[in-house]
Design a protein around this nucleic acid. Structure first.
Lengths: 334, 334
DNA sequence: TTGAAAGCGCTAACAG
DNA sequence: CTGTTAGCGCTTTCAA
């Protein structure tokens, strides 16, 4: 079916070793003429390296495994994969992604991944959370992306939620807003941390508790897009209250989308009456809202890139949690 | 590092052949006791099959390659991959995706993929288009997803654009709309086909040309989300015209998003004054618009599933273009 | 029922 | 500078 080094060697009348050297330019030096001839024959026969065979000697396939929560099926995945892929390609490797979706547990999918003998494995979560990786897999996973190991046995890369919340809240305050409502994502780590940062920024600015309303975007304490949204009723109530907010901070861009609609219904204009800001910078949403949304962009791409650095580095860095900064994207909603 | 069959055999005091038979339960039968003991040792040693080694005999890795346009980085990818992955897993294989993004040409990435010796390769495009696959790769690619081979040498799976346009247009007509504007995606195959279906449905209903306005969503005849949008001005002009439309059909859900905003600015309500309908059913957008958007859902998942069937079938079906139906998702915008 | 041995395609070590 | 050979881990054929 597919041509092998042997086929080329036979055709060229040299040994496989010579062909291997010619194509993959090992230290073996040979007449440039022979090398050229071999390359031509390889081309002619449609030869492509057999990584499986090569890996028998090397011990691993030129792959970086990415085991994901349910990530691949989420729009956020794209940026993490882009970042990882770009960096990994530089080392002539490819990213091989598998999704946990139907699986019972993390261990079984990690074992599935290991069968392909990747050089290293990263674990990524769809949203920032704490993951309890079974002890026996602490060595298998080289880095955790967008989540942290509950037992701190694996180097983790997570977005700096607190910093981002402080930055965006301060930004709203600097824009003159004094009564900020935060429609947060309840029951998830990212939400807790952001609320912490939010309150800290308000404290720092000397704004009292009355100006620090925090409301849940959904009823259930679970992150699920299926859960019925509380956004319309919250916004309605806020705007009808004795002291309506002059800014609404949203848990993510989709919440912001709903906030936009609800504000319009209540007759408020953005940003004149109420400024709106958010977290995510989700492709195709944030920039297309009317007015375009000011939001803190998640460092997905950077986490992917950084993960590659860690995985492919000669020596593992000391285990720890690295917080990567969000980026403020200023648009017209503030 | 990793345990091999040899290690297990040594520990169990049997031959590798016996271990292989015990773990992968080939035709080889043996005492249930031995098999059990071997399995325990394997577990204890943390053995996982080495697919690379196995593939040396089989000739291929248990992989289905997915070479994509730029697909992986698009939210649409998710459903195609889900469909493909689900079906492929049933045959104990995994999907291995690679993106064309930085590459010069299709050929080079197909060769890169071939180095991993996948069982079969699918080619997928981000949006429905015609792809001119170099002749020498016609055999390499088993099926084309969301695009068709310009030379009809490869089986292709594409959405039934014409059918979808007819269905949604008829739906609008049945809802009593008589003056439908279509803000289409210019310069791409999907757009052309939909316009054809749109006009056909109007003709069939006996609605004359005056009720069939087709306008481009963007200026450049290229599908790009970077291109400046013409939607706001088109909607403005339409609503100011002597005979404003009672329905607007949109090229995709993001166009619909902009149409919503523009209609609100002009004071029109949805669906009372103007019904809005679209194509895509993009996750997180269509259902969250206010009011939720009636749209024709792209058959991405079905194309992925179907692709797996074709790739893994014993015998290849006769080459041809299979059109998969969209699904009408009725919400409140009509 | 189990063992021994060959061989898949490649690279690395060793000879020539 | 080039050829020969061994061996990676596995499955498969042939023997026992």
């Amino acid at each position: 079916m597919t041509a092998s080094l042997n086929d080329i060697a036979a055709r060229a009348g040299v040994s496989v070793k010579t062909v291997s050297g010619a194509l993959h330019g090992g230290s073996a030096r040979m007449s440039e003429e022979t090398r050229q001839r071999i390359k031509e024959i390889a081309e002619e026969l449609g030869y492509v390296t057999n990584f499986a065979a090569r890996s028998m000697r090397q011990g691993w396939m030129p792959l970086v495994g990415l085991v994901a929560d349910d990530l691949i099926t989420s729009p956020f995945a794209t940026e993490i994969i882009r970042g990882l892929d770009g960096a990994v390609r530089a080392s002539d490797m490819a990213v091989f992604a598998m999704t946990l979706s139907g699986h019972r547990n993390v261990g079984s999918i990690l074992d599935e991944m290991r069968r392909f003998r990747p050089r290293a494995i990263a674990y990524a979560a769809m949203y920032h959370k704490s993951v309890d990786l079974p002890a026996e897999f602490a060595d298998t996973v080289g880095v955790m992306i967008n989540c942290r190991d509950a037992n701190d046995r694996v180097t983790s890369l997570v977005p700096d939620e607190i910093g981002a919340a402080i930055e965006i809240t301060s930004y709203l305050i600097e824009a003159g807003r004094r009564n900020i409502a935060f429609i947060n994502l309840p029951g998830i780590l990212a939400g807790e941390l952001r609320e912490f940062g939010f309150r800290q920024a308000l404290d720092h600015a000397g704004i009292d508790g009355a100006g620090a309303t925090v409301l849940p975007a959904v009823g259930k304490p679970v992150y699920s897009d299926r859960a019925p949204s509380l956004v319309p009723v919250h916004v309605h109530d806020l705007m009808k209250s004795r002291r309506p907010p002059d800014a609404i901070l949203c848990g993510n861009d989709r919440v912001a989308m709903e906030v936009y609609a609800a504000l319009r219904r209540s007759g408020a204009t953005i940003p004149d009456d109420v400024a709106v800001a958010s977290f995510d910078n989700q492709v195709e949403i944030a920039s297309r809202l009317d007015p375009p949304l000011t939001t803190m962009a998640l460092p997905h791409r950077a986490m992917g890139r950084q993960a590659a650095q860690i995985l492919l580095a000669e020596d593992r860095p000391p285990v720890g949690v690295q917080k990567l900064p969000f980026q403020l994207v200023e648009r017209e909603s503030v």
